[in-house]
Design a protein around this nucleic acid. Structure first.
Length: 150
DNA sequence: GCCAACGTTGGC
DNA sequence: GCCAACGTTGGC
């Protein structure tokens, strides 16, 4: 089983939205590296941190479980969708997504600033300079350590 | 295959 | 709102 971290802008989709919806497709990812991980590496049963980016309180806010493995992101085919991509063909889809299920909220947000203070988290992709990946793996050690901060 | 231009991400 | 860092595109 693997661990992941997935970013979302709470103005677009927050942990409370996921709590309400229970299961949701993680659509709109338009980055090849992130796509490859969703298409090839994420497995049913994997766990992921949900991370709020581009907002007032930036950080890890909750836990999710992967409940469906990579399948074509249909929003890429919809001209009226914000994430429409004319280069994605239904016969040869360019973008993929997974389904996630709400597991729980953390008791508090573990902020980015706090994560940066722990030497133990050196090497966590999230903390690397200029990191822009919206989906990334988290090692078991880092996963456990982050949860111990809660 | 190189690389400049451009667009986007995302912290601050 | 600013801007550094990065990914993508496309001309050559």
């Amino acid at each position: 089983m693997q661990y992941w971290l997935m970013k979302s802008e709470p103005g677009e989709y927050s942990i409370d939205d996921l709590k309400r919806d229970k299961v949701e497709c993680w659509d709109g990812v338009r980055n090849f590296q992130a796509r490859n991980m969703m298409r090839d590496d994420m497995k049913v049963g994997d766990l992921a941190f949900m991370y709020h980016s581009n907002c007032d309180v930036i950080g890890i806010v909750g836990l999710m479980k992967i409940v469906r493995e990579g399948y074509p992101d249909h929003t890429a085919f919809d001209q009226h969708d914000k994430h429409y991509d004319p280069k994605s063909d239904p016969d040869n889809p360019r973008w993929f997504m997974v389904d996630v299920r709400y597991k729980r909220k953390l008791k508090r947000t573990i902020t980015l600033a706090e994560l940066r203070q722990h030497e133990e988290l050196d090497g966590l992709q999230l903390l690397k300079r200029g990191n822009r990946l919206s989906v990334m793996p988290v090692s078991q050690f880092h996963w456990d350590f982050i949860l111990s901060l809660e």
